[in-house]
Design a protein around this nucleic acid. Structure first.
Length: 1022
RNA sequence: GGGCCAUUAGCUCAGUUGGUUAGAGCACGGUCCUGAUAAGGCCGGGGUCUGUGGUUCGAGUCCACAAUGGCCCA
């Protein structure tokens, strides 16, 4: 016997029972363990940042990961999946800062780094707990008992090892990196933080500055410029480049001008000077009193030199050379070059761009590429250094002073104001400065071609990411600035000598312990700041004291190192690392393209020259029902716990999988979760409860649960559903192998619909009928086989419902069976059972039935009323045969006595018929009703009334009853007599259908049937 | 400001390499059926396929530009 199944089900309760079963019986652990020794399928968990409550969008990626891993497990692969948590990084620090009410780094240092980092650790552990609970509840199987944590000392040591490898290959260097910097808070801001603080309509200076062409530099022998202006330098007719800027305070840092090589520039002659600017911008700048004497190509301006506005040596400011950063000694005369650059715009300004490598990312890039000077005349608090007349001022206060000075010197062409968008600090509203800071870099550009060729081996879903977003990103690769001036992170493992500046990279704890003169190594060891900062040792070069550099490592480096750091490789688990590299599958949201996908790929390519993953699903984001981003501030985030309670995890999973393909943006809709539950899961549940209900009544015992042939041959319709099922298995396997679970669940949905609304609907009588013949056995066997197979097929997608169905339909009757559906194998399609002609034939009769019902509606005759004949037009021999073979279903479904087949279209007008056509196909029903047909119609009407009354009276399906009736109508009396057997059989009126007054304890109702009244009553018999 | 993606019915989505009158589900209105069903059938309303140009005998589909939204980077 199967356990009784209620047709009313609360999925969340059912799921919690299943969860308990999994936990108590370690089903997840077993599902991995039983595949030990089988081919490996490696999954890498992209570690979620344990910062903030998990939302519905996190359920999305967890679902996709879980589905693929479960699928592969059931296919026989060994799929261990270690959970991981990204524990370091700025978001964690910001959260703690907020809770302490801090808004600057100095406050953290006053508070104490040790205490601060302890709070970060606690904060992370708190969120990890929340995440674990959510992960478990939505049925995402991960080994969360043995996760990797990026903050563990072992993990950090592996990161150190990686950096040491790169250091030894001279791929690590110190350089400058331009970051948005808040001069008040004294800290760099992440791009996320910058995005929080953009202000439109910021009022700033808009100034046009004249840079004087060096008299010795008028181009080569035959340049167009020389031709215009002449060979002999004329002091009274100087040549200027006209340059536009909104940040005058950066002008003392100017060391080059950039032009667009392929743009036309005008040489404008005025009374006392020549001005050069882009030809298309002359009118916008408004050069009254100047006339164009010639045009030159941008190319011809490149390599000309101009006089600095502020020579750094005149104002006691350090000047370094890029890219070496060597401090320059004084030179006699200084001139700066004009360079060509692709980014120069002719949309605004003058088409000649002021370059200050210390104050802009593009500027720094130009500086590195052209070996420019690097002049940083502003300190981190935004104050101007040196001996300028405006030194000691905050940069924004210096702006008007600089403009004034240039005006006095005659180098200001025009000064205006402009309203534009500018970033401010989101905490203190101070304008941000783009500022070059020292940073540690990994020379990823060295392996750029390997990054690109490695990507060729990766299978991306959706495909366009490969050569689109990810490929482009690799093509434009720049060295990875991997250090951060923060506290809670993997410390950069480089020590620097205080005396001679000698640098040394430490690759392991052991190496550190063995350093000569090492001191302040505490036990137990803690590799975090501030403890690691205290460790010093003796310099091998000069005997001075080596101390650690202050930076920590970018947390993207941490997570990208997981493929080896999760095993503490190479210090232990060498076999595990090797057995799990590269990954067969990873999956994250699309924002990880330049995050984890990149860091994982890059570290692997740097170390081993090859990629670390083979297949990757990049998920689109989940947005709210209006298509807008979910965020706390908008208040449109969806709480997964509420949904789980209302609809269950399977419904959420099913919805997330089915609603749109992985790469697309998903609009989240609670209504659609409800729909997924109703339409597919509940429908399946009802087929299941229907089966169990009748199977138990008949004491059905499945003899084979593998779909093998019974001793009797299966009827056509059973072979049909078995065929559909095997076809489905093949389709689902195919699309799953292509990493497309969306296609898989959409196909399953169609099958469930067919199973319920055709197979069960058409076969109800086979289950109801009394007796226990072969046909009934075939029906039970077939439906049981379908449900059990479906439970295995759906197990990766709807793990709870599948488990429930499997446990009851298999485990309850077979003690030898695997205890969980998740320990079974994924179904394999049996192609010998796929009968395509039969499937086509069935589809044909479905259409014919649909047309027939429409014809009935058109004629206004209920389906309950039998009709004498239907005529169906077919257009091929195959269709005719199909229809003949399955005529019984058409006749039953449409309640007609005869089915006639004709070739070609049926004429629109046939006496006595109602005709309906759709495209090539047409049907006609004969609508004249004989007295016999009418009587039969009445009998069916009566049956329907009695069935309704049984239900209203609260009888069980198998309850036997007596039916009483009273009526004056002769016709009805006659029907009750003629159809007594039929009525009694249909309504289980074994006690008889008697014409009598019902007893008081019977349930009675007055009914109207074809214009006459009848009193009907039902009563249970013992 | 740049790159990538998306835009098809009120909502969520299908629409092969261009080829009849653009489909499904949900929702809505009507009606029928029903002792598995929270379901199902039938009929119906609802579309300038975001817009503008172009290529073509023919464009939802290919190209260009624009708008809106999302993501990434400035």
């Amino acid at each position: 016997m199967f356990h009784k199944v209620e047709s009313k089900v609360v999925f969340s309760q059912m799921e919690e029972n299943v969860l308990r079963f999994w936990q108590q019986n370690n089903i997840f652990e077993k599902s991995v363990a039983i595949r030990e020794g089988a081919p490996h399928y490696t999954f890498y968990e992209g570690p979620p940042t344990a910062n903030g409550q998990p939302g519905i969008h996190h359920v999305l990626s967890r679902t996709f990961k879980d589905v693929i891993c479960r699928y592969r497990t059931m296919q026989g692969y060994h799929v261990p999946r270690k959970a991981g948590w990204d524990t370091h990084g700025l978001p964690v620090e910001l959260e703690v800062e907020k809770s302490l009410g801090f808004n600057s780094k100095s406050q953290i240092e006053e508070y104490g780094i040790a205490k601060f980092n302890q709070l970060c650790r606690e904060s992370v552990l708190g969120y990890v707990k929340e995440w674990k609970a959510m992960t478990e509840r939505v049925g995402c199987w991960l080994d969360m008992e043995h996760p990797y944590m990026t903050m563990d000392d072992e993990y950090i040591e592996s990161c150190w090892w990686i950096l040491k490898q790169l250091w030894d290959r001279e791929l690590v260097y110190q350089g400058y990196r331009v970051t948005p910097h808040c001069p008040r808070c004294g800290t760099s801001l992440s791009s996320h933080e910058v995005a929080l603080g953009y202000k439109e309509d910021t009022d700033d200076p808009s100034v046009y500055i004249k840079f004087r062409l060096c008299s010795s530099s008028r181009g080569g022998q035959k340049t167009p410029l020389r031709a215009i202006i002449g060979d002999v330098p004329r002091e009274d007719m100087p040549v200027y480049f006209l340059v536009w800027t909104t940040t005058p305070w950066t002008l003392p840092g100017n060391t080059a001008l950039a032009v667009a090589p392929d743009v036309e520039y005008s040489v404008m002659k005025g009374d006392e000077e020549y001005l050069i600017l882009a030809a298309t911008l002359v009118h916008r700048v408004g050069l009254a009193g100047y006339e164009q004497v010639e045009t030159v190509c941008g190319e011809d301006l490149v390599n000309l030199y101009y006089e600095p506005l502020f020579d750094p040596h005149d104002f006691a400011v350090e000047c370094r050379s890029l890219p070496s950063l060597a401090v320059e000694t004084e030179r006699e005369s200084r001139a700066y070059p004009v360079v060509g650059a692709g980014f120069v715009s002719t949309e605004e300004g003058t088409g000649i761009v002021h370059i200050a490598p210390a104050f802009g990312e593009i500027d720094l890039g130009v500086g590195m590429a052209n070996n420019l000077d690097f002049v940083q005349h502003v300190d981190l608090s935004g104050e101007i250094k040196g001996t300028f007349s405006f030194a000691g001022r905050f940069v924004k206060e210096a702006d008007p002073l600089i403009i004034g000075e240039l005006q006095e010197r005659g180098q200001l062409y025009k000064s205006e104001r402009i309203l534009h968008t500018y970033p401010f600090c989101w905490r203190c509203e101070t304008p941000l400065l783009y500022y070059a800071k020292k940073s540690w870099f990994i020379k990823t550009t060295e392996v750029k071609s390997l990054l690109i060729s490695g990507n060729e081996e990766v299978n991306w879903y959706p495909q366009y990411i490969k050569h689109g977003r990810f490929g482009d990103w690799l093509e434009n690769n720049v060295d990875w600035a991997f250090s951060r001036e923060r506290y809670w992170g993997t410390p950069v493992n480089v020590w620097c000598c205080r005396m001679c500046g000698h640098l040394e990279c430490i690759g392991s704890v052991k190496e550190l312990r063995l350093k000569p003169g090492v001191s302040r190594l505490k036990t137990p060891l803690n590799l975090h700041r501030p403890y690691v900062d205290e460790i010093v040792f003796t310099c091998s070069q000069c005997g001075g004291e080596m101390e650690r550099v202050p930076e920590v490592v970018d947390c993207w480096f941490d997570s990208g190192a997981m493929f080896l750091a999760q095993w503490h490789y190479p210090f232990e688990n060498s076999d595990k690392f090797k057995g799990n590299f590269p990954a067969d599958f990873i999956c994250e949201a699309v924002d990880q393209t330049r995050g984890w996908f990149y860091s994982l790929h890059t570290i692997s390519v740097l170390l081993f020259g090859k990629p670390s993953f083979r297949n990757v699903i990049s998920l689109g984001h989940l947005v709210d029902d209006k298509g807008e981003k979910m965020s706390k501030t908008r208040g449109n985030v969806v709480d997964p716990w509420k949904l789980v309670g209302d609809y269950g995890a399977d419904a959420i999973r099913w919805y997330l999988l089915a609603s749109s393909p992985a790469g697309n943006v998903h609009r989240f809709s609670t209504q659609k979760v409800a729909e997924a539950m109703r339409k597919t899961l509940l429908t399946l549940w009802n087929v299941y409860s229907f089966f169990v209900l009748y199977a138990n009544i008949d004491h059905f015992v499945p003899r084979h649960i593998d779909g093998r042939e019974e001793s009797f041959s299966l009827p056509e319709i059973d072979r049909w559903i078995v065929s559909e099922l095997n076809y489905l298995i093949a389709e689902v396997s195919d699309v799953m192998d292509e990493y497309d679970p969306t296609a898989a669940v959409r196909r399953i949905e169609k099958f469930v619909d067919c199973l319920s609304n055709w197979y069960v609907r058409r076969n109800r009588r086979r289950f109801w009928k009394s007796g226990n013949d072969d046909d009934k056995q075939a029906a039970y066997t077939t439906l049981h086989y379908c449900l059990v197979t479906l439970s295995r097929l759906m197990a990766p997608f709807a793990p709870f419902l599948s488990e429930e169905v499997y446990r009851n339909l298999v485990c309850a009757v077979d003690t030898d069976a695997a205890e969980s559906v998740h320990l079974t194998d994924f179904p394999v399609a049996d192609h010998t059972k796929v009968d395509l002609p039969l499937m086509r034939a069935t589809r044909l009769i479905m259409i014919v039935c649909s047309l027939g019902r429409a014809a009935r509606a058109k004629a206004g005759i209920k389906v309950r009323q039998p009709l004498a004949r239907i005529v169906v037009g077919v257009d091929s021999r195959e269709e005719e045969e199909a229809l003949q073979k399955l005529a019984l279903h058409v006749k039953e479904e449409l309640n007609v006595k005869e089915l006639e087949i004709v070739h070609g279209q049926i004429p629109d007008e046939m006496p006595g018929y109602v005709t309906l056509g759709e495209g090539e196909r047409s049907v006609a029903i004969f609508t004249e009703l004989s007295p016999e047909l009418l009587s039969e119609g009445i009998s069916r009407e009566i049956v329907r009334y009695i069935q309704n009354m049984r239900r209203v009276a609260g009888f069980e399906i198998a309850d036997h009853i007596i039916t009483y009736f009273q009526t004056d109508a002769v016709v009805i009396k006659q029907v009750m007599r003629d159809f007594a057997d039929y009525i009694s059989q249909e309504t289980l009126s074994d006690g008889g259908v008697v014409e009598d007054f019902p007893p008081d304890d019977a349930h009675d109702e007055k009914c109207r049937i074809s214009g006459s009244e009848i009193l009907l009553a039902v009563k249970k018999v013992a």
